[in-house]
Structure formats: C-alpha cells, structure tokens
Design a protein around this nucleic acid. Structure first.
Lengths: 191, 191
DNA sequence: TAAATTTATTGACAATCGTCAATTGACTTT
DNA sequence: AAAGTCAATTGACGATTGTCAATAAATTTA
C-alpha cells in the first residue's frame, strides 16, 4: 500500500533504498471507516495524510452548519496546513466520506525526513506549489463563475467525484444551499 | 530598497554576506507607474515580484470583464505561480494599482539561488506554505460567508487596503457587482 | 477653473437565492 | 417486507442580486 506513496514521491524525485526503507518503517498506512473524523476544529494537527484509497472532506463549522471547502481523492495530500506547520489550533475539520486508506505522516517523521534527506525539502516545496495552484484555481472559480457554472465545470473535470459525494456537501462546496443545487441540477437537465 | 527584501528573507533564514551580495547583484528593483500591466493572460511568466512599495492586483479576464482574485501589498510576493513554476501560459493578469516599487526575481536567478544556496529551498517552501495558507483563508471566506460579511471582515483586518482600492475592483474580489457592493455599504452604514 | 472622464450611487424590475415546510425518494435496519 | 431514517426535490414567499439606465460625486485633464 505504501508503494502508492513511494510512486507519488518518485514522480518528482529519485529515491534510494535507504530513503524508501525509512519511509516504509516510519509512515504507517491505516484504513478508516466512512465518516471518521480525522481532525476537528481547535485541535492541533500533528499529522498529515496521503490518500491511498477513498475520499476525505475538509470543512468549516459555521454556527450549526458545516461548510465544505474541499474534497481530497486518491493520490493527494490532505492536511490542515496552517495547524500542522505552525502547530496552532486548526480552523479545519477533516472527515472521511468513504472507507479510506491513508498514509499517515506525523509531525516528527515529516521533519526528520527533511532533516535526514535534504531532497525532501525540494519535494515539500513542489507539493506546496501544486497545492497552491489548486487553491488558486478554486478561488478563480468563485471569482469568475456562478454556482451553476462551477457545477458544470465539476461535471466536465470530475464526473466521477460527483457520484461519490452527497449533494448537500457538494452544495456548500459550491457556495449554495442544497435546495439551490437541486434546482440548478433541474435547470441543467431540462435542456 | 532591496534591503526590504533582505529583511523579509532574514525573518526566516540567516543570510551571509555572499548570499546578500548575490541578491543585491542579481535582483533588480524597479518602480512602475500606476496601472502598469506586469503580466497578461497567455504570456509565460518568467519573473516574480516582491512588493517593496505599492499595490498589485491579480485578476482574470472573463468575457469583457475583469474579475479580481487578490490584492498584493507591501512585503508580499506576487506571481502567477503556475505559469512561473511550470513555464506555461498564464491564466492571470497582474497590474499595479498605484505607483509601485518591486524587486524582480527572474526565473534564472530564482533557480540559481536554489542551486547555489540550498537554504533557499527551505525558504521557498516556507513562502509557498504561507501563500497556501492565505489562499485557504480566501476560500474559507467564500465558503463560510456572504459578500456582506467578507466586506465587514476586510474592514476589520485591512481597513487601510479598502481606501487604496477602487470599489469596482473590490466588488469583483468579493464576488458581487459594483452596484451590489454599493448597496451593501449603504446597508452597513445605515445602522 | 472648467470640461471631460471616470467612479459611485440610486431606482426600477426581473431573475435568482435562501428559508421554511411538505413531499418524495433512497437507503438502512430490524 | 415494513418501518424508520436520511437525502433530495418541490412549492411558496420574502430577501437579495444582477442588469440596465439615469444621476451624482469624484477625479483627471486641458
């Protein structure tokens, strides 16, 4: 299972056997039930995750409601970066939406990796860059499109994802209520 | 002027004189007029900027309109990261909103810095992390608040910025039309 | 300073959205 | 299979928003 993560790393840098062994020995893989809360608001995050299989949702608590900011699928990293890097209280909640298999990178292991193998500093930068570009695209979607077009774009780019996510979560991710998303869908299919 | 950038770097890492000299010799500082277009859509970005003084806007062209995604003020880096790091066509436009003094880091110099002085790899990662956290906060504001509350939050956190930005740019940044922002402001002041 | 241009405000109206409630549909659990 | 639970849809209505047009205010330019 951890091979998925090694492969992901090797997409960016070459790993020797010492490095691979260190990763295998120190990054455990664990499977979580559906709707398992990996991190909740106000906790300090001391690990981040790589999704080997399944689906994780990042959301905010707003009053009594939950507002989804992102869905993380296979071969992506999940984290409350602010809480993890600054070791401060998290604004984010992380929850699995399916039975999900994750590689778990603890704070200690992450910084040991950076210390022992400088090439991981490079890797970490590249990962951050990719994550940043992703975030900028989301911001772009909010600034340049309305909810209907955001939904249509998701249909084009991630049709599979739509079928794995409950609509009431998708709605908040699009910035509308579930009722409005339902009507958007009706408008779309009726043409 | 370049000292502002050095100081910013030194907030994160120690710099020896060799490194400082390299930066002074290779990172020029230039002042641009108000409304100068630093980068436009479909160009490949081969430099990024550090704002020493002034204000830069990042925006998207949508049909005939411009939609603002962010404002960069003093002591922040500005870039179309995707275009710069992947050397692909930019989706972004960058424009000064005031007479603006920038440190200009070219693609060559950036990668020479990383090559010559490995500590800049660490610095680059930290910068990316900070930028990422900023982006996540913007996404949070879209997902958790309506335009009125986004405006109120800006008033609290960045009162100064509001007075430097034309309202029609601020409106698109908040995700509404200028008319709606005008009415939001009216609603707010009338209580 | 006056004229011209740009920006911000306001009004009117139609379209869209949020809210609350009711209903339908889908899925679980026993 | 039936009951129960949760999710999605639909209807009604008020509030908010976008659009277009007109006006007012502010800024720039001659």
């Amino acid at each position: 299972m951890i091979d998925t993560l090694l492969k992901h790393f090797e997409h960016y840098i070459a790993l020797n056997s010492e490095e691979k062994d260190y990763i295998k020995a120190n990054i455990p893989v664990k499977t979580f039930n559906k709707n398992y809360l990996l991190l909740s608001e106000n906790e300090v995050s001391n690990e981040f995750y790589f999704v080997i299989n399944g689906l994780v949702r990042l959301y905010y608590n707003v009053g009594l409601e939950e507002k989804t900011a992102y869905f993380y699928t296979e071969n992506t990293f999940v984290s409350s970066y602010e809480s993890f890097t600054k070791q401060c209280k998290s604004k984010h909640n992380l929850e699995t939406l399916e039975e999900t298999t994750l590689a778990i990178i603890s704070f200690e292991v992450a910084y040991k990796l950076l210390e022992l193998f400088p090439k991981f500093e490079f890797l970490a930068r590249i990962m951050m860059e990719e994550e940043l570009i992703m975030c900028q695209d989301i911001i772009a979607s909010f600034v340049t499109s309305n909810a209907e077009n955001r939904y249509l774009n998701l249909m084009k780019r991630d049709k599979d994802l739509l079928q794995r996510i409950p609509q009431y979560h998708l709605a908040t991710f699009l910035g509308v209520t579930p009722e409005t998303l339902s009507r958007i869908r009706k408008r779309i299919t009726s043409r």
